[in-house]
């Protein structure tokens, strides 16, 4: 039930992220909603759930892109796992902490993805444009996380409640 609900959230995020063109473009970059939800789930639910949801969301996106299938899943999983582990020591209620944690997580996942692509033989031109895009996506995801954290936390609580209810009532 929990996984199905998160699956639906990822599908909605992916459809929104890939609709267009120009689609959802803010300040010249495309926010990575699937990655953002995976990172937030790691922050809210802890490292294990974060890793599972990260892998699931990343794989959904990889299957749609059709290239380097599994790489995005691994990159998102690692970032969500890292954020889940770091989240235990951080005060998540603080806006700035949340912003910088998501910024760091987004940068790590995107950088890992690019390094993975380079490792599998794709020439990555490490031009200023790449760094600008990386930072742009990180900042944008950080900003969106400020708005999205509470609704996702509320939704997560409801999902857990329904899950428990379903288990008890059969």
């Amino acid at each position: 039930m929990r996984y199905a609900c998160y699956g639906l959230i990822f599908v909605a995020a992916l459809a929104l992220q890939s609709a267009g063109p120009p689609g959802l473009v803010l300040f010249g970059v495309q926010p990575q909603l699937v990655l953002l939800i995976a990172l937030l789930s790691g922050m809210i639910e802890g490292p294990v759930s974060g890793a599972i949801f990260g892998f699931m969301g990343g794989l959904f996106q990889d299957l749609l892109t059709g290239r380097f299938i599994g790489l995005g899943a691994v990159a998102t999983m690692c970032a969500a796992l890292g954020l889940g582990l770091a989240g235990r020591r951080l005060y998540k209620e603080n806006l700035l902490v949340r912003f910088f944690t998501i910024l760091g997580g987004t940068l790590a996942a995107q950088l890992l993805y690019l390094l993975g692509k380079a490792a599998f033989g794709l020439a990555i031109p490490w031009s200023p444009l790449i760094w600008k895009t990386l930072l742009g996506v990180g900042l944008l995801n950080g900003l969106i996380s400020i708005v999205l954290f509470r609704p996702l936390m509320f939704l997560n609580r409801r999902i857990i409640y329904w899950d428990e209810l379903l288990k008890r009532t059969g």
Partner: peptide, 14 residues
Amino acid sequence: VIGRSPSNWESTIT
């Protein structure tokens, strides 16, 4: 055109 790449690193459309 119904979509574009969900990633910032590829320029594709669907």
